[in-house]
Design a protein around this nucleic acid. Structure first.
Lengths: 211, 211
DNA sequence: TAGTTTATTGTCAACTATGACAATAAACTA
DNA sequence: TAGTTTATTGTCATAGTTGACAATAAACTA
């Protein structure tokens, strides 16, 4: 398996596994965005990637492997984008910037979250996928909790948890409206609603008096 | 077509179209909840309904007809449940009851919203479906706006719109978490977040001072 | 009973998706 | 050049999905 072995014998033809896998999964992503997960047959993926179906199978594996690889890739991409976003947040009022980015910043792969939604739907019949998407979701909520906590140190854990979940809901639901062409229309309301939610974490006299 | 015509000729064998259609669409719903929309082949629907595939086709039509009929049925069901819910709301503090119902009341067909989600996803490649689901969604938001307006007559149209959209997002997103078995866990947070959102509509001194 | 309409069953053909594998070509090194 | 590994192409069998239609059975009324 490894090329670090002693050169006792001849070296093989160099492997294209990495590049081809990337090529295939990119095509898969495009197909999912256009035809849905179930509508993305190996044939279509092969055509979209410019490879033969046999090659798709050769490099990435059968359909199950393909879906799992796609999930891993999308999660990795999402984590990366997330990392970059977190790093560029300001020290104070980080949440405002966060909401701006979440609801108005169009990244290079705008279909990422649509694919996530497809994967979540498909998770009903795939335990491996289910576990992976569960982890992804809870990490997403958890990361937002951390950011909220920095800005609102006095807020209760529970309030922060609820607010974080609310933000994620608004974000994901917006993407699931893409097929209806309603996402752009509801982008400002989603952002406003998220802002309102966050505002309830602010400590005000009337709030403290209520308890 | 109509049986009110004069009995000039013999009467035919009575039609079972209504019952059979109902039978088929119920089976279709079950299948969608279990296998997803694309995973619900005519064969499966036929088996689930206890009818032959030919009969499914005979009564409801081809696949496209089937999906459109399902959409019409689900929308009708949703409208009905919605009507009942609205009627039983109290005069004052209707919103509290509304949120209780939305997030904690389990209706007879708990999979309704899951099917709605499937239909929204499938709307990418079906303009008829897209139009229908757009209308459904916007009506949903609109109805919640009306209820909010009754309780918060002083709130601005825009605030009410944003809040209504937020509630719908929280509600729909919760259902889309069903495949991950996370919906029950996040039910209280979703409800709390919705409540918080609504609370921002309340007129307080500090609010009015901010503008 | 005859006539009409619908229900029901059964079947055929075309197409698609998938998995498996054989065979050939290419890259590389000793 | 020989030997090894991988890339690439091509093909086969199988199963599943769908649309179309023929043929029969059943219900009903005049």
């Amino acid at each position: 398996m490894s090329y670090v072995t002693i050169n006792e014998f001849d070296m093989p033809r160099p492997s294209l596994k990495e590049e081809r896998t990337e090529q295939v999964l990119q095509a898969f992503q495009k197909c999912v965005a256009r035809y849905g997960l179930d509508g993305s047959s190996l044939e279509r993926i092969a055509e979209e990637s410019g490879l033969q179906r046999s090659l798709v199978r050769h490099f990435v594996g059968n359909r199950t492997d393909l879906v799992h690889s796609l999930a891993a890739r999308v999660i990795e991409q999402s984590d990366l984008q997330w990392q970059l976003l977190i790093e560029q947040l300001p020290e104070t009022n980080a949440v405002d910037t966060l909401l701006q980015c979440l609801f108005f910043y169009k990244d290079e792969q705008p279909e990422t979250m649509l694919i996530v939604s497809s994967l979540i739907s498909a998770a009903v019949r795939d335990d491996v996928l289910k576990k992976a998407m569960q982890k992804w979701f809870q990490q997403f909520v958890g990361d937002i909790e951390k950011i909220l906590q920095r800005d609102f140190s006095t807020a209760s854990k529970e309030d922060i948890h609820n607010t974080a979940f609310g933000i994620v809901s608004l974000y994901l639901n917006l993407d699931s409206l893409t097929p209806l062409d309603l996402d752009d229309h509801y982008r400002p309301p989603a952002h406003k609603a998220a802002t309102k939610l966050v505002s309830t974490l602010k400590e005000t006299e009337s709030d403290t008096l209520l308890f």
